[in-house]
Design a protein around this nucleic acid. Structure first.
Lengths: 205, 205
DNA sequence: GTCTATACGCCGATAGAC
DNA sequence: GTCTATCGGCGTATAGAC
């Protein structure tokens, strides 16, 4: 068919590597800009400026502004579910108190990573149907696993595990997020202790 | 000095009444529009359209878009603090469980009023320094009163009432807000029971 | 006092030079 | 492949007629 020269590789193909690097630069810049200015005021011009490239170049790597945000959110969701899955599928502590401690610590770590960006993602991100679907699924999975945990654990005495699971997840996620994001943030270690105590006393009746 | 006719009232002054009525119409329209579209996409044109007036008229009643939002938020804060103050300064139930029940019910009522608007207010509202200050003060007041309550109550056994108070307030406010705002909202009565149980068991050790 | 029409600025996205 | 320059659209806010 075509010339055999097709098969000959160019001497190097650094473009894939460089391109991926630039993508990451843009995403990092976007994370900062969105965190500082919010989504609406986090303009593509600002992102390009912070990434050290021109606006035109930015649009070679992402089709539009929403795609940048979507990738940031996807990234975070993937990180979170990966960590949660790793913990939940492995061997868990026996006592429910220590299990909750693992939960809370997981949430604290996820949120300490980049609280400002996370706040923006959770609160201001334009909620496309597809993204809402993804978020809802992740949440439902976590609630479901927690329910199973509550149902199977000998220490646990709750009348309605499904409701209890929803309450536990909401409390951990929102509480950690909010209390650490405040201007005078609570001590992470103390928050962990108190929240674990609250949840444990709750489910052990 | 000037003519005594000054003292004579004009036959009627319906303009103040009508003007106030129009202001309220605009605010109500804005609440709906913001709730439906969010802050950024809740344009002044849409607000004017929904209020049944022209964009030009709108700007006779409010200097700019932010002022409309600020008044909505102020209104909500005032309503909330009024209700909270009424409850907290009056006679409270003896048992801490029933006190928490009052708390939770208060939050549920406040949030059921207009969940969508509230979500927008809490999450998307541009946080001017002055508004942040107001919100922070309201929150601190509630945490403070809760701390005093915990310190003075015979049933309560917590090592650190200040931290516990922060946790309690955050849990109630955020939990109620989130669990009722979900696509498949939790039953309000059951939420109340479970949350009260959790908080009570927590602080009574 | 309410309207219509529009000025003005900003932003996302694209075209086209290099 | 990156840049500069710019288009098109939208949104706030104002001007001026009635």
């Amino acid at each position: 068919m075509t010339s055999d020269q097709r098969r000959i590789q160019p001497r190097k193909q650094p473009r894939q590597v460089r391109a991926e690097l630039t993508r990451q630069r843009i995403l990092t810049a976007a994370a900062h800009v969105f965190a500082d200015h919010g989504y609406a005021a986090g303009t593509t011009n600002r992102i390009a400026e912070r990434a050290g490239i021109s606006i035109g170049s930015l649009y070679q790597y992402f089709p539009n502004k929403d795609a940048i945000l979507a990738e940031l959110l996807t990234r975070h969701l993937d990180d979170g579910t990966a960590a949660a899955t790793r913990v939940l599928t492995g061997p868990l502590p026996d006592s429910i108190e220590e299990v909750f401690r693992v939960f809370v610590r997981l949430a604290v770590e996820a949120h300490l990573d980049d609280p400002h960006l996370l706040r923006m993602l959770l609160e201001q991100a334009p909620r496309s149907d597809e993204l809402l679907e993804r978020i809802g699924r992740v949440k439902r999975t976590m609630v479901d696993r927690t329910r199973q945990l509550l149902e199977g654990h000998p220490e646990v005495r709750v009348a309605d595990p499904a409701t209890a699971a929803r309450l536990v997840i909401a409390t951990v996620e929102l509480g950690v997020h909010d209390l650490l994001a405040e201007p005078d943030p609570i001590d992470a270690r103390r928050l962990e202790d108190e929240m674990v105590a609250m949840l444990t006393r709750y489910v052990t009746g």
